[in-house]
Structure formats: structure tokens, C-alpha cells
Design a protein around this nucleic acid. Structure first.
Ligand SMILES: [Mn+2]
Ligand SMILES: [Mn+2]
Ligand SMILES: [Zn+2]
Ligand SMILES: [Zn+2]
Lengths: 143, 143
DNA sequence: ATCTTATTGAAAATGATTTTCAATTTCAGT
DNA sequence: ACTGAAATTGAAAATCATTTTCAATAAGAT
């Protein structure tokens, strides 16, 4: 079974486990998001999903995004061009590496920044709780 | 001379050096932004600036923000609650540390992540050009 | 002080997102 | 499979943020 299919089924199960109904609009939006290698904004999701389910309404895309984000299944991606697109969330603490050419994203982990955080805490007097780290570059195909 | 005054005058000079006229609306918006310790969104800037110059129009806030960003005097700040606020930019490569309590921000430097970047390049096949790093925590006053 | 032109604020236009609501669909209980 | 209660839907209207338009004003060069 391909990875995206597995993810899709996990999301379906998660919705049901949280008493959400498994409707056609939701399933279609999930199909699009669970199989995308790049972050998509509401309109992009709408256009792709309509190929599979033409009577889908844009409102349902917004509503489904809200639900999926609440369930931590997707996350908003911040980029210089805007912060309105979403991609499947990784479970656990991870960071994104974004291709500036094609938009393809991969997750990476690594908390090599622990010592940096410690130093900054010393110097600033702040107590650090969280960090955002995102790398931008070019994927193999786009180099 | 206090630091904010110095920054304000630098910005005034930068505008003039780029053939922008030094108008009341621009000066007022700059006064607000150059002296703020936290990021402000257009409406917040508008409200604060109107205390000094009541006939200011909101459009001018938007226009001035655009100009100042182009001149690299301010930068947009991305936060979980939104990405519409601006703060004075630091010259050179720096990162932000944001207080989750009061919003107060400080810059820090440190490219301790060079080795991390190298490792991720190896593992992913991407070529990394840029990185975003932002820390969130609590400032001394808010602890 | 005058002139040229950039800049302004009000109002209208646009674009994205949210709310409202009657019709439809899901799903639990039979 | 059938029924009914309740969640969910899409269309349309409403809201909110931002941009555009435009006539009036103000900055700065002469
Ligand atoms: Mn990390
Ligand atoms: Mn850095
Ligand atoms: Zn690429
Ligand atoms: Zn604080």
C-alpha cells in the first residue's frame, strides 16, 4: 500500500475517532492534501479537489482545513511569498526544508540548536520554549 | 541621544537619499515603528500614529509600510497568531527571539546551525540557500 | 513666493475569508 | 433496507483587510 494511501486512511480514522462524519467533500480534500508533496493554498486545493468532485464548494475547503489543522494532521507553512498554504504535518518535532524552485518539501529533524538556544537564553535573559527553523534551497531535480 | 531617535533619523535620511519626500504621515508612522519594542500590524500602527497625527489615513500606513520594507528598514514578523506585523529590521544576518507574554522582541545572531545545514544537505540532496530561525519564550519581565 | 510633481485621504473596488441558512447527507438505531 | 436526528453542505450575503482611483494638498526645488 502506497504511503499516501496509508496517510489518507489514518486521517479518515482520526476524523471518525473525533466524531466527525466521513463526507465526500472532506474525503476529497484529504485525498488532495495527503498526497501532495508541496504546500497548497485553499484555492489550489479547491481546484485540484474539484477534478475529483466537481460540486465541491470552496467553503468546505476552508472548513476542512480548519478541522484538519485542529487535529494536527496538517500545518500551515510560512514562506516569503505568503503564509496561506498547508501541508501534511509530521508527527513529533520536525522542521521543513523547502525547494525554492518547485516547492517540494521534506521534513528533517535534528536539535543541534540546543546549545545555540542555551547561549541565547544566557545572553537575553529570556526563557525559550519553542523554536521555528525552516531551510530554503533547491531540490536535486531543480539544481 | 536615545537609540530610537537615532534610528528614526537614520530612516528619515534613508528616505531622502532615495528621493522620497519627508511628509508628516511618513514621519509619524516612522516614529511609531522606530520606537516600538514589539511588532505592530497596520491597524495598531494606525491607532498609535493617530495619537500624534489624527488626520492620518490608514492607506498611508499601508503605503509607508511598503516603502520601508522595500528599503529594508522594517521586516514582517511571522508568528503563530498571524504574519501581518512589522518590526525594525536588523542590518546583517540576525534572528528574532519573541516573548510569548508581552510580544517584546530581541535579535540574536549565531550561525551555529552551519553544521546542521550541512548534514541536512547530505541527507536530503537539497542545496540550502537560506534559513529562517525564530525562538519563542518569555522575557525576564514575563517569567 | 511660485511651480512642479509626489503624496495624501476619502471613497470605491477588489479579494479573501466567514457567516447565515435552507437543503442534503451521514450514520445510528431499527 | 428504512427512518429520523443531527451534522454537514453549497450558495449567497456579510465581513474584513488591502488596493486602486482620483481630486485636493503639501513638499521641495527654483
Ligand atoms: Mn528543532
Ligand atoms: Mn542564521
Ligand atoms: Zn525543486
Ligand atoms: Zn515579555
Amino acid at each position: 500500500m502506497p504511503k499516501e494511501t496509508k496517510r489518507r486512511d489514518t486521517w479518515f480514522a482520526c476524523l471518525q475517532a473525533n466524531d466527525y462524519r466521513l463526507t465526500k467533500p472532506r474525503k476529497t480534500v484529504i485525498n488532495v492534501l495527503a498526497s501532495s508533496r508541496q504546500a497548497l493554498n485553499p484555492t489550489e486545493i479547491f481546484d485540484l479537489a474539484r477534478e475529483e468532485y466537481p460540486s465541491l464548494g470552496l467553503v468546505s475547503v476552508y472548513r476542512t482545513l480548519e478541522t484538519l489543522e485542529e487535529l494536527n494532521l496538517i500545518q500551515r507553512v510560512h514562506q516569503p511569498e505568503g503564509c496561506k498554504s498547508y501541508i501534511a504535518a509530521f508527527s513529533g518535532h520536525q522542521h521543513l526544508l523547502v525547494c525554492e524552485g518547485c516547492g517540494r518539501m521534506v521534513y528533517f529533524d535534528g536539535d543541534d540548536i540546543a546549545s545555540l538556544v542555551e547561549r541565547v537564553e544566557q545572553e537575553s535573559g529570556y526563557q525559550v520554549n519553542e523554536h521555528w527553523l525552516q531551510l530554503f534551497g533547491r531540490c536535486q531535480a531543480c539544481q
